[in-house]
C-alpha cells in the first residue's frame, strides 16, 4: 500500500510495531485484573525483592505485565526520538528513499509532540502502577491507570495514522465527540471493574457511545462509499463498536453467572479481557477515523482528484471530506 505518507517507511513500521506491542500490553493488563492478580507482587519496582520472581499463580500475570510495560516504555522513548529526528530529504524523498510527492513537512511539530506526550503518559502509567502496589490499590490510582492505558494506546494510534496522513488541519466535530465518548466509556468501565460505580452508568454510557459512533460512522460511510480511505475505517469503527456491545453483554452475563465462583473463571476472564481489548480498539479506531476525516488528511492528493457528486458523495483518489467537516 502506498499512501504517499509523511513518515518514512521504517518509522511507520516501527510506530505500528509499538502500537501493536501496546495493544498486547492492554491485554496483559486485562489479564492481571481479570485474574485478580494485581497485588500478587506486593513490592515495586522489584518483584518479591528480585528482578525475576518465581513465576507461579497470579505472579505470572503481574510480572509479565510489568516486563511488557517496561519494554513498551523503552520502545516509546525510541519512537519519540525517531519521530523528532525524522526529516525529509530535500528532493521530497523520505529517509528510506520513498518518494513523497507533494509531501508536507515532516511531523516534527505535532507528531513529535504526540510522541513525547506518549512518553509522558507511559511514565505516568509506570508511576501509577507503583502507587497502586505501594499504597494497596487506592481506587483512584487503579482507575487512572486503566484510563491512561487507553489514552496511551490512542496516542500511539494517532502517531501511526499521522505518519500516514499528516497531523495538521481542522477536526470534524462528530468524530471527535465520538472518540471522547468511547474514551469516557473506558473510564466508566474501569470504575465498574474496580467497584466504585454500578454497571448501570456504563450500560447507559454504552447506549450513548454507540449512537454517537453510528452517527459519525454512518455519516462518513454513506458519504464515502467509493472512497476506501474513509469507507474502511468507518466500517472498522462500526464493526468494532458493535462487537464491543456484544462483548459487554457477554461480560455482564458472565459476571452474573459466576458471581458466586470461588476463583476467576476462564469464561469470565475471556469475556472481560476481550471487552477491555476491543474497547481499546474502538477508541483507537475512533481516533484513526477522526484523523483521517480531517479536511487536511492526505492533502498530498487533495485538490487534484477529489470530486463530489451532486448528491454529496465524494469520489476519486482523494480525501473525501464529509459535508459537516470544517472547510
Amino acid at each position: 500500500m502506498h499512501l504517499n505518507s509523511v513518515g518514512s517507511l521504517w518509522l511507520r513500521r516501527y510506530a505500528m510495531f509499538v502500537a501493536c506491542c501496546t495493544f498486547g500490553l492492554v491485554i496483559a493488563g486485562g489479564l492481571v485484573t481479570s485474574n485478580d492478580a494485581a497485588l500478587s507482587v506486593p513490592d515495586w519496582p522489584l518483584s518479591w525483592g528480585r528482578l525475576v520472581p518465581t513465576l507461579e499463580g497470579g505472579i505470572r500475570y503481574e510480572f509479565a505485565h510489568r516486563v511488557a510495560a517496561m519494554l513498551v516504555g523503552l520502545l516509546t522513548v525510541g519512537l519519540a526520538l525517531a519521530v523528532g529526528t525524522e526529516k525529509p530529504l530535500p528532493d521530497g524523498r523520505g529517509s528510506d528513499g520513498t518518494t513523497h510527492l507533494h509531501a508536507e513537512p515532516r511531523p516534527s511539530g505535532s507528531g513529535s509532540w504526540l510522541a513525547w506526550a506518549a512518553v509522558a503518559v507511559v511514565l505516568a502509567q509506570a508511576a501509577l502502577g507503583g502507587v497502586a502496589v505501594r499504597f494497596v490499590t487506592p481506587a483512584w490510582a487503579t482507575i487512572a491507570h486503566a484510563a491512561l492505558g487507553q489514552l496511551f494506546f490512542a496516542i500511539l494510534v494517532a502517531i501511526c495514522v499521522g505518519l500516514y496522513a499528516g497531523y495538521g488541519g481542522g477536526w470534524a466535530a462528530p468524530t471527535v465527540v465520538c472518540t471522547v465518548a468511547l474514551f469516557s466509556q473506558t473510564i466508566l468501565g474501569a470504575c465498574v471493574r474496580y467497584g466504585v460505580m454500578t454497571p448501570v452508568a456504563h450500560i447507559v454510557g454504552a447506549l450513548f457511545a454507540t449512537m454517537l459512533v453510528m452517527w459519525a460512522g454512518l455519516n462518513i460511510l454513506l458519504q464515502n462509499l467509493e472512497n476506501p480511505r474513509l469507507r474502511r475505517p468507518a466500517l472498522v469503527l462500526l464493526s468494532i463498536t458493535f462487537s464491543q456491545v456484544f462483548l459487554g453483554i457477554g461480560s455482564y452475563m458472565a459476571r452474573i453467572v459466576y458471581a458466586g465462583a470461588p476463583q476467576p473463571m476462564p469464561v469470565l476472564v475471556l469475556f472481560t479481557v476481550a471487552h477491555v481489548a476491543v474497547g481499546s480498539l474502538a477508541v483507537g479506531a475512533a481516533v484513526a477515523l477522526a484523523m483521517l476525516a480531517r479536511p487536511n488528511a492526505f492533502r498530498v492528493h487533495g485538490g487534484t482528484g477529489c470530486r463530489r457528486t451532486p448528491g454529496g458523495r465524494s469520489t476519486g483518489c482523494c480525501c473525501c471530506i464529509p459535508s459537516w467537516a470544517p472547510a
Binding site: P42, D43, W44, P45, R50, A69, G130, V133, V136
Partner: peptide
C-alpha cells in the same frame, strides 16, 4: 521505570 530499586523492603 525501575526507579527506587531496593524495593526488597516489605510493603
Amino acid at each position: 521505570t525501575l526507579g527506587g530499586c531496593g524495593g526488597d523492603k516489605p510493603a
